[in-house]
Structures are given as C-alpha cells and as structure tokens.
Amino acid sequence: MVWTYHRSARAIVYIAVALIFSCNDAEYQLDNEFDPTNLGLEPPAAFFHPGVIDTLSVGDTGSFQLYSYKITGVAGAHLNVLYDWGSITIDSVTLDPFFVNENNECIMFWEDDQGMLDVFLFYHPTLNTRTASGTGSMASVHFRVMSDGISELVYGDSTRFVDEVNSPVTINEYGVGSIDVTNP
C-alpha cells in the first residue's frame, strides 16, 4: 500500500535505483522470415510471398502474392510467372494495393497458359502522382493443388517494369517460391 499510494516514496526509490543501478540495453534480432531484408535480395527486386507454401494437401486451395521490394517510379508491369503445370491450377488473380492510386483506380488483366501466368498491371496517373513506388503486394494469385510434389514459382524472362515514358525500370533480383505438397 505504501508503494501504491506514496508517490514520493516511489520517486525516491526510482532516483535511488537510477543512481545506483542501470537499466537493460534493448537487445533484438530482426530475423522474421517474412522480412524482405532477410530474403537476401538486393533491391529493387520482386519476390513471392510467402516464399514457401508447405501446409497444403492435394485438393486444397491457397494463394501467394506477387511482391515488389523497394521498386520506384513504376507506371506499369508485366509479371510473367512460371509454375509447374499439373501440380497446381490458377483459379484467379486479384488486385493488391501497390498499383492502386489515391482514387482507388488501377488497370489489371491476366492470362494463364499451362504453366505460364501473365499479369499486366498499369498505374492510373493522378494530378499528384504518376507512378507507384515502394514495397508492397502487386497482386494475389489464388490456386488449387492438383497433385503432390514440389512446384517451383519463378519470374520468367518476360517480366518487366516500365516507368511513365515506357522506359524499363531496372530490377536487380527476382525471388523464387515453392509450393510443397505432401500426401495426406
């Protein structure tokens, strides 16, 4: 009760503790596996999130995101994703916030052709901004598992990013992903 109700006593103790002892230094390890800094990619880069999907079985549905990592000045993108046709089938592709402007506008369409998924994204310019920049999810790909095994996800050679005058934006590295399906 003395401790709770006597603030002066607490203040004296705090002063004594501060004078005699010291507090702990903050120790931390920024080792979250989903942290782009820990993926070993040199930005600007593009990767899959999550990088490894290993919790699904045959017949299950899942999704992965097409992620940008510190890409700047992008007005449009062609994301060419190669996957193991027969292991999974693409159900749909949905738009994510990276290319969406302040008016909630964006142009996206996609094509899937037996192991090759092409996603086209265009930033709708406004009075304030004409390009998208930063780190964020560009699109989400929803799929269904058809057979067990490991299906790799890779950005194909056709993948490119362009700025507002259609000049290529340099991407240093592309990450890879995998869908690891186990037998039930």
Binding site: N32, F34, D35, Y69, G134
Partner: peptide, 17 residues
C-alpha cells in the same frame, strides 16, 4: 518488436525495422 515478431506482411515489417 513484439509486433515485428508476429507480423507476416513484408511491407509492414520493413516499416517496423
């Protein structure tokens, strides 16, 4: 730091660092 350890979104994690 607690939020960082439980977060899964890469963009949010990058902002927390």
């Amino acid at each position: 730091y607690n939020s960082y350890q439980s977060e899964t979104d890469p963009a949010t994690l990058l902002e927390m660092r």
